[in-house]
């Protein structure tokens, strides 16, 4: 199977969808040029009417995407950095997250708000703060956060074909990550998690960059005889409770790792659900690992302290294993 970068997989997904449906358009700042390469080369094939460069105008562009989606197009709105979605928040929260419902089902909104979420490259507070919990909190919005080149292609294609608004969060620091990506067209269902590594002792729930940190932690834990199962949620809303709960029922221990803040963050949501629905399967308290509750600092040294690292997952794993030992003794 050919190997591609995460960014190249995004390009492939966009090109395939633009080719197969004339109603798909791509709009946003610098989409022709493709500054982060995800949209590069598309203008040459699809031209001005499909690849629409816009002013730096997030609120206006997001709203325009919504109006276009309500009138027959399937726009992909490229908003570059997750934090820029704050500028578009009114349109996403008050329009995209409400329109279909508040108008009694008169419209569908097939729109993808695509951006790069999270930190890890020293981009500083305004370009590194993860935004996904805000959108997980909104009704009617799907939230997708892929971790691998294979996933990003299949999930982006599915998001574009979905008739609901989707916030699609590529990870800022995964762009050059390489992996196997078939040239053939395929989609991956939204709302389905994937077990990226099987293990009997504990479950790590993660998405995006945290999946890679969890896999690193799992490799280290295996050396001390602890087998961690890593569940990659892939879609944060609706999220695959079934797969996660089934895993926790098997392992009896769970660590939720999310690159977001602890208050109402991803880890908090998953942990609450697991505690509620798999309580009697638990051999130890569910652990949450989240970003430190500060803006994302610039210095790489400090940034690493904010974003959950593999070592924190390893430490939490030893903690839950030890808790079990104490209880057993």
């Amino acid at each position: 199977m050919p190997r591609k970068s995460y960014i190249a997989a995004i390009q492939a997904a966009l090109a395939e969808e633009l080719r197969q449906d004339p109603n798909v358009i791509l709009i946003g700042e610098d989409v022709r040029l493709g500054v982060f390469a995800g949209t590069r080369g598309l203008h040459a094939e699809f031209g001005d009417s499909r690849i629409v460069d816009t002013p730096i105008s997030e609120l206006g562009v997001a709203g325009a995407g919504i109006g276009a989606a309500a009138t027959g197009l399937r726009p992909v709105v490229d908003l570059m950095f997750g934090t820029f979605l704050y500028l578009a928040f009114d349109q996403i929260a008050n329009q995209a997250a409400a329109m279909r419902y508040m108008f009694g089902g008169q419209t569908r909104l097939p729109i993808v708000f695509m951006t790069q979420n999270g930190g890890g490259i020293g981009a500083g507070p305004h370009h590194s703060q993860p935004v996904h919990p805000f959108f997980m909190n909104l009704p009617l919005i799907k939230v997708v956060m892929p971790s691998t080149p294979y996933d990003v292609k299949g999930l982006l294609k599915a998001a574009i074909r979905d008739d609901n608004p989707v916030v699609f969060l590529n990870h800022l620091s995964l762009g050059s990550q390489r992996g196997e990506v078939p040239d053939e067209a395929y989609t991956l269902p939204l709302g389905k998690a994937e077990i990226k590594r099987a293990g009997r002792d504990l479950t790590v729930v993660a998405a995006g960059l945290m999946v890679h940190h969890a896999l690193k932690a799992a490799a280290e834990l295996a050396e001390s005889g602890i087998e961690a199962e890593v569940v990659d949620l892939r879609t944060l809303k609706p999220w695959d409770e079934e797969t996660v709960l089934a895993s926790v029922e098997r392992t009896g221990r769970c660590i939720c790792v999310d690159e977001s803040y602890p208050v109402c963050g991803g880890a908090s949501e998953w942990a609450a659900c697991i505690s509620e629905k798999a309580f009697y399967a638990l051999k130890a308290p569910v652990q949450r690992i989240s970003n430190a509750h500060v803006p994302i600092p610039f210095s790489p040294t400090l940034e690493k302290m904010v974003i959950p690292q593999p070592a924190a997952i390893v430490a939490a794993a030893h903690r839950v294993m030890a808790t079990t030992q104490i209880e057993r003794n």
Partner: peptide
């Protein structure tokens, strides 16, 4: 709203509907 006659909705947020109309024009 009445989408059957192109009425894409009233809007409770002051100014919130303006970008949506731009999108209908873009469409």
């Amino acid at each position: 709203a009445d989408f059957s006659i192109g009425m894409l909705g009233a809007c409770g947020i002051v100014g919130g509907g303006i970008p949506v109309a731009v999108g209908a024009g873009l469409s």
